[in-house]
């Protein structure tokens, strides 16, 4: 519901800018960025407050419900929320048992966290795009006396590449850690350099090493990058479509009504995407860790 005063481009840009707290490069002081350009100028020394806030909120919702279920867990007959949560646990447990062949007590809780947390972060996309930013604008204007156009609130943490890359690199770190722990540095290096081209001749094998390393290193690096960018790309594109449809609300009754129908349709379709992306992230996490645990 962009007001008459701002253009569609401004509206989109406003929606895609994070609420940023960081160090101003000119003055060296810390503070909130007032514009997208200011946020950009802060470089690495900045933090997206909205991403952190919403990811923490969704994360704590996850922890709250699951911890409560864990406390109430018994061998008796489960009811209501307990039942639902045990269903999710069962589902994760089955997935992990199906894809992960080694023994590691960390993988299943990791998969559970990945699945539920990403699902909840993605699900923030289903809140109509303008609700939370508008409320944030009103609060910013009335409580802090800010210009509402300079109050930024991006509510879907998984549309922030920082969130997805952060998670993907944590998993990548675990993959490296377990690869080296299980196979040893020699084994891991051999995996990177002795495949896929092999030869009985030692000289030819030596020549193959750089080629193998190039191929294997790229495929190794591709794991976290693809993991992060797949989730980010899907959620970003999904949110972008919500924003684009939302522009229709400002163009009159007929278009607005059509926009409402489109929003609903896209939201229903998006339920599939948010679940699927959470599931893919989880499954790939399990598969990558399984590969780290197994010698080829």
């Amino acid at each position: 519901m962009s007001s008459e005063a701002i253009s569609s481009a401004d509206y989109i840009k406003h929606h895609l800018t994070n609420w940023t707290y960081g160090k101003f490069p000119e003055t060296g002081e810390w503070g909130f960025a007032h514009t997208a350009a200011e946020a950009k100028s802060m470089g690495f020394m900045a933090i997206h407050v909205d991403t952190m806030m919403w990811s923490l909120i969704t994360g704590f919702i996850f922890l709250y419900f699951f911890a409560r279920a864990a406390k109430a867990a018994s061998a008796g007959v489960p009811t209501g929320v307990q039942n639902f949560i045990e269903m999710i646990i069962e589902f994760i447990d089955t997935s992990v048992r199906g894809s992960f062949t080694s023994k590691n007590d960390m993988v299943a809780p990791l998969a559970l966290t990945v699945f539920v947390w990403i699902f909840l972060m993605n699900a923030m996309d289903l809140v109509p795009v303008d609700w939370i930013p508008s409320i944030a604008g009103i609060i910013g204007e009335t409580v802090f006396g800010m210009d509402p156009h300079h109050v930024y609130m991006k509510v879907v943490p998984s549309t922030d590449p920082n969130a997805t890359i952060g998670m993907a690199f944590s998993i990548f770190f675990l993959v490296l850690f377990y690869s080296i722990k299980i196979k040893g540095i020699g084994g891991f290096t051999a995996e990177l350099t002795m495949m896929p081209f092999q030869s009985k001749n030692k000289v030819v094998q030596a020549l193959f090493i750089p080629v193998n390393f190039l191929l294997e290193f790229v495929s190794l690096i591709a794991k976290p990058i693809s993991l992060a960018l797949r989730l980010f790309g899907n959620m970003y594109a999904g949110e972008m479509i919500f924003i684009l449809i939302a522009i229709m609300f400002s163009t009159g009754w007929v278009m607005g009504a059509l926009g409402g129908v489109l929003q609903l349709g896209w939201a229903i379709f998006h339920i599939l995407i948010i679940t699927l992306q959470a599931f893919i992230f989880m499954t790939l996490t399990i598969v990558y860790l399984d590969m780290a645990h197994n010698d080829h």
Binding site: N18, T20, G22, A39, K40, M42, G43, F44, M45, A46, I47, H48, T51, M52, D160, P161, N162, A163, I165, G166, F169
Partner: peptide
């Protein structure tokens, strides 16, 4: 922007 949020 890639920034401290990554670490957070």
């Amino acid at each position: 922007n890639i920034n401290l949020t990554l670490i957070g």
